[in-house]
Simulated assay, not measured.
Amino acid sequence: MAKLYFRYGAMNSGKSTALMQVAHNYEEQGMQVLILKPQVDTKGGGELVSRLGVHRKADRLIRPDMDVFEVVREASQATKLACVLCDESQFFTAEQAEQLFMVTVDLNIPVICYGLRADFSLRGFPGSTRLLELAHTIEEMKTICTCGRKAICNCRKVNGQFVFEGEQVAIDLENDVQYVSMCPQCYFRARRAFYAGRK
């Protein structure tokens, strides 16, 4: 039985790199994969980009109004798919997360989603929340904070300053936005300093 996997982690936990390695492993065995990326993630344009410098073209860019099940079904009619790989899955809608689940149910094709669990204010993304509810298997990808503790928070910087207010979606390395992986202790220290400075 095909399964839906959700592999989540903070920024810099190697999600895109791991996805590209999985794609390589399948292809080295002569199997076909389909790589999907939400169009809202404009970093890299139509490519998946890893901080290690590795990049790869996505097979399909998914708009919020697209039916992902139909995209996969059509692709599977043209070639036998061994797996569907999804980068930046937090940017899928909740409905699209359900459609990816149905790919495993009705098309019997495994789906592996990589993404963030929560945003810079520790609130879940709609796509990630639904994937956590539906996935057969949930795996955490780990990284560390600058202090050496396990990082589970994503902290947003704008023009080099930590910010804790704003739109949920702001793409890394665009418009002077940068994300830093932090442990809860460092995250809340920075957050308290941000609000103290506004009094």
Rank of each mutant, 00 (worst) to 15 (best):
A2M: 11
L4Q: 04
Y5E: 08
R7L: 12
R7P: 03
Y8F: 14
A10C: 06
A10I: 12
N12G: 01
N12D: 05
N12Q: 10
S13Q: 11
T17F: 13
A18D: 15
V22F: 05
N25Q: 08
N25K: 07
N25E: 09
Y26F: 09
Y26C: 10
Y26S: 01
Y26G: 05
E27S: 12
E28Y: 13
G30R: 13
V33I: 14
L34K: 01
I35S: 04
I35R: 12
L36N: 09
V40D: 06
V40R: 06
D41H: 08
T42M: 10
T42D: 03
E47L: 00
L48C: 09
L48N: 02
V49S: 00
S50A: 11
S50E: 01
R51T: 02
L52E: 12
R56F: 12
R56I: 06
R56S: 10
R56E: 11
K57V: 13
A58N: 15
D59A: 05
R63K: 15
R63G: 05
R63W: 11
P64V: 03
P64F: 07
M66I: 12
D67E: 09
D67N: 14
V72A: 05
V72P: 09
R73M: 12
S76E: 01
Q77P: 03
A78N: 09
A78G: 03
T79V: 13
A82L: 06
C83N: 04
C86A: 15
C86Y: 07
D87Q: 04
D87F: 12
S89D: 07
T93I: 01
Q96N: 07
A97S: 14
A97P: 03
Q99V: 13
L100H: 01
T104P: 00
V105I: 08
D106C: 00
D106A: 00
L107V: 03
P110L: 10
C113F: 07
Y114G: 01
Y114P: 05
D119H: 05
L122W: 11
L122P: 02
G124S: 08
P126N: 06
G127E: 11
S128N: 02
S128H: 03
T129H: 14
L132K: 08
E133I: 04
E133A: 13
L134W: 01
L134M: 11
I138L: 15
T143R: 06
I144N: 02
C145M: 10
T146P: 11
C147V: 07
R149V: 02
R149H: 13
C153M: 12
N154W: 09
Q161E: 14
F162S: 04
V163S: 13
G166Q: 05
E167Q: 11
V169C: 03
A170T: 15
A170E: 14
D172Q: 03
L173C: 14
L173V: 10
L173G: 07
N175C: 10
D176L: 14
V177L: 12
P184K: 09
P184V: 10
Q185H: 10
C186F: 14
Y187K: 05
Y187S: 06
Y187W: 05
R189D: 04
R189T: 13
R189E: 02
A190Y: 08
R191P: 13
Y195M: 04
Y195T: 01
Y195F: 15
A196E: 14
